[in-house]
């Protein structure tokens, strides 16, 4: 891990108020990502991986509330920052790409113009130069015949191409941090490989930090420097990718690896994870939210968990593998 992280998240907690009670969506989430580093946040649905991203971007649902925590990016705490500070930081310092690129693009504006808009607003590019720079960016994300494609509307492009446009927009202002929320879910594997290549390449060139949110442990294993595994709003393990895949310490991480189809030679060898997520509205949630499904539960598991310190290999478990 680098000495000065691009983003350090400490003790982030988020609650959602719903009709049927308060959902403790995130609790004591901590991690850091260094300059030029790619961090993958992996988890199943309901793990809180997307909520983490939305909290960092300040775009939580109105029912959501950040109850504690800091997220420091270049000296600014994103959590306590004012709306105008955040608006300034978003797009310039942090950019985000979403799962459904087509819905995130303006359907009635040519893609080249949309990129030019961002360049003028956040990149200090003069109006006359913006269109040409937009074409350059389209070329950089591997779109063939960028000058012609710049005039195209989102509906005229495939999902893969829309995602490339989103990347071009996200990277227009050369942000220090890119948050990619399931950027390739719903795309074909061959397109996924190309998109991930583009992100990695552009991040490498500019020293940008990348937080990459996915449900696909194999994809994370292949593309990330570090992996944060989340379960029910907790970070259960945070380690360098190689170490995490080869020697998982948290029982949940181990189960997740064993359940990934790629890991098994036959269907019988594939392990299933017993139990299901606890109801996060419960008042009597155990300190370790995995303990009720855990085959390695010991008495100490009822004690509060070790706090996620920014250790090289952090495990939120009293009885790790």
């Amino acid at each position: 891990m680098t000495a000065v992280p691009a983003l350090a998240v400490e003790d982030l907690s988020v609650e959602f108020r719903t009709r049927s009670g308060v959902v403790k969506a995130l609790e004591h989430v901590s991690f850091a990502v260094g300059k030029g580093e790619t961090l993958a946040i992996v988890g199943e649905s309901g793990s809180g991986k997307s909520v983490t991203a939305y909290a960092l971007m300040g775009i939580l649902d109105p029912a959501g509330r950040i109850t504690a925590g800091r997220a420091v990016l270049g000296g600014l705490d994103l959590i306590s920052a004012s709306a105008s500070q955040l608006a300034d930081v978003r797009g310039r310092e942090i950019a985000m790409i979403f799962q459904n690129p087509r819905t995130a693009l303006n359907p009635i504006r040519p893609v080249g113009r949309q990129i030019a808009d961002v360049l003028m607003r956040h990149g200090n590019v003069p109006r006359v130069e913006a269109p040409a720079r937009a074409v350059d960016l389209l070329r950089a994300v591997g779109i063939t015949d960028p000058a012609r494609r710049a005039k195209a509307y989102p509906f005229e492009m495939s999902g893969g191409m829309c995602q490339r446009v989103m990347i071009a927009i996200a990277l227009a202002a050369r942000p220090a941090l890119l948050i990619a929320d399931e950027p390739t879910t719903g795309l074909d594997v061959t397109t996924q490989a190309v998109i991930m290549d583009i992100i990695a390449e552009l991040a490498g060139e500019s020293g940008m930090a990348t937080i990459f949110i996915t449900h696909d442990l194999a994809l994370a294993g292949q593309r990330a420097d570090r992996v944060v595994v989340m379960h029910a709003g907790h970070v259960v393990e945070n380690a360098a990718t190689r170490a995490l895949i080869a020697r998982p310490s948290h029982p949940y991480t181990a189960e997740l690896i064993a359940a990934t189809p790629d890991s098994a030679a036959s269907l019988d060898a594939l392990a299933s994870i017993p139990g299901s997520l606890p109801d996060l509205r419960r008042a009597d949630l155990p300190p370790c939210r995995y303990s009720e499904r855990c085959p390695r539960k010991v008495e100490r598991c009822d004690a509060p968990l070790p706090r996620p310190a920014l250790a090289e290999h952090f495990v939120a478990c009293w009885n790790p593998l």
Binding site: G142, T144, S158, V189, T190, Q192, G221, Q222, I245, S263
Partner: peptide, 23 residues
């Protein structure tokens, strides 16, 4: 071949630079 090469692998091996260009 390109399809197989694009499948993410847990072990990180086989990240062959075999990419399909164009549409």
């Amino acid at each position: 071949r390109a399809l197989v090469a694009a499948v993410p692998r847990l072990d990180g091996i086989g990240l062959a630079k075999l990419r399909l260009s164009g549409e």
